[in-house]
Design a protein around this nucleic acid. Structure first.
Lengths: 189, 189, 189, 189
DNA sequence: CATGAATGAGTTTTCATTCAT
DNA sequence: AATGAATGAAAACTCATTCAT
């Protein structure tokens, strides 16, 4: 593990835990066992580091979602796989997941501006669109609904992290999957 | 409008727009047409001001929600009224609404710690609990579901603010209400 | 004397003595009896302070030269008055003079870019032009010759400051005046 | 071209262009295509490199001046040869010339402290002294007059570099030679 | 000789807060 | 109540220099 990696991992944890602004470069360096200047050899500054980490987390999630949805044959199966994929992402990389979701509403994802949607959202919207085409899902603006589902998942993750649930984590996940499908599915007839 | 009020309103706008930490006291004072020191005559400091504003916003929303749900006779009607209440709150006090919702996931609502849930969430959870009792709503952990619904509403608000929707604002609101009810309602069987 | 003034005077002395880059903001603040932050209340930073001081020195010299040359009736008298004016400026405000002259060859006088020449040079060039018109001075590019004369004066000032002269200061000044006139004057016939 | 040479030439250019303090070792290494550490294999540090370059430039100018004045039979011819020598030096090694002249007024030529005058100045002063002895030149403190002439030459060089002259470079040089002789020469009487 | 990641002391800069007026 | 200059502690950032490879 190089110093650079140590700095990245430490920064990710601190950013996820207390936010970017509340984390100082000194704190990062100290916890990473590196000198403060080392951070600046590898990044242009704290903001650059935050940006780079955001990109990395986005790519990690992207990959996780791609793998998760790879073998889903139907739109509902794909939607379920995506939702479970986010939870898996959270389970395997909690700091990345927390940071990514927390950064969603701060001014960090500027350079996704060329995309209509941030990348993970796009995956959800695509699955919804496919389901709308074949009639499995109800007709609705896919980006809006994708946003809802992601927001729900994020809310469940927050509850899991806060340990504020009266039910088992797995049950919360299953219920979230169920809720997402219920949101998307077309009325019976 | 007293200096104090000017400071409050300016701070609220800035906090909502760029976050508390990214807003400087100098900036607040300048935009409010007051001296930097004046803030300290009315509040113990920036954090105290942020806290006070948070409380004020919470009470405003609380009141809005109480009024909205006052005459709702059934749990679904109450749930719908609450959801619409949040949208009304956003329409009439966008900065308050944005600030309140953004502060939900930052470390601001410390002194609600004695409450199991932040106040607005409690309203939603109560309505859901009532519906579960009488069988209108499906049995599920009310705080989790309340969190989902509020997250969805917040997501719709974000989309409205970003002007990122292909449909009319009112349609987006109606759809959100619909989605919330769908989430809550018991299965037909 | 306000803190701001103390900072200005201290900075001017230090800049003149050791150069801008070799002077630290801490040093300025300490010697001025002010806090480091105070510098930033009044200026955007060290460079801004340096710029502002440069402008002030330029205006001071400008005024000194205007006064000096006011009653000069002929071009040679005017040229002599200007040269003596620079020496007077050096005598009355040594730090300003040193700083101004030292800054001439560093990258500081950017915003004079709209002028063809830095202001003091302009005065000399104007006097030379006038003398060329009436035949007292030899025909030559005035800016070039003005540059020479100012460079000579500057060199004398440097020698005076270094105390590296075998003759009395006043004699050095008189000789410089004489040399300047000799440079400018037309050949006898 | 060895790495050492690359570092020397690059550093010389950067020092001449932006000054020693404003040039970073990283910048030198990068432009020279060498690693940062390599500089320290050949020099004790940045200041040592600057010092070494200064000496080299001084020797180059010294040689140029020696060659130029070698066959000058009279003091005026020698003075003219020296002035033209500086211009030749500028033409053949602009960076060396700029660096050398710019360093004249910064604190670089410490180890010339044993000499009464920096070396090039000495050459001029010697020629002037010789002329004063035989009556060709007016009686005056040779160091002062040498300083004037060098300052004039430097000013012409600056004008040439800035391309701020209305006349041809060669004409500017000739005029500078002429002016230098005029400064030095004894009055007719 | 050459490298370049790492260092850390030193610098600039920010900003919440205080206080004399 | 209001002011705004002043503060200083803490933050971000720079860069000459070292050293293991």
């Amino acid at each position: 593990m190089t110093k650079r990696d140590a700095i990245c991992e430490t920064a990710l944890e601190l950013f996820a835990e207390k936010g970017i602004e509340a984390t100082t470069t000194r704190e990062i360096a100290e916890k990473a066992g590196a000198a403060e200047g080392t951070l600046y050899r590898h990044f242009d500054g704290k903001d650059d580091l935050a940006q780079w980490l955001y990109q990395r987390c986005a790519h990690q999630l992207e990959e996780t979602l791609n793998e998760a949805a790879e073998y889903a044959s139907s739109p509902p199966a794909r939607l379920e796989a995506l939702v479970r994929g986010v939870f898996n992402f959270y389970a395997s990389k909690p700091a990345s997941c927390t940071y990514l979701l927390s950064a969603r509403q701060s001014g960090l994802r500027e350079d996704d501006a060329d995309e209509a949607l941030p990348l993970p959202l796009r995956r959800f919207a695509d699955a919804l669109d496919a389901g709308m085409q074949d009639g499995t899902f109800r007709d609705a603006p896919a980006p809006l609904m994708a946003g809802w589902i992601l927001a729900m998942v994020q809310q469940t993750v927050r509850s899991l992290k806060a340990d504020a649930l009266s039910i088992a984590p797995q049950a919360a996940i299953d219920r979230t999957v169920d809720a997402a499908l219920r949101l998307a599915e077309a009325p019976l007839a």
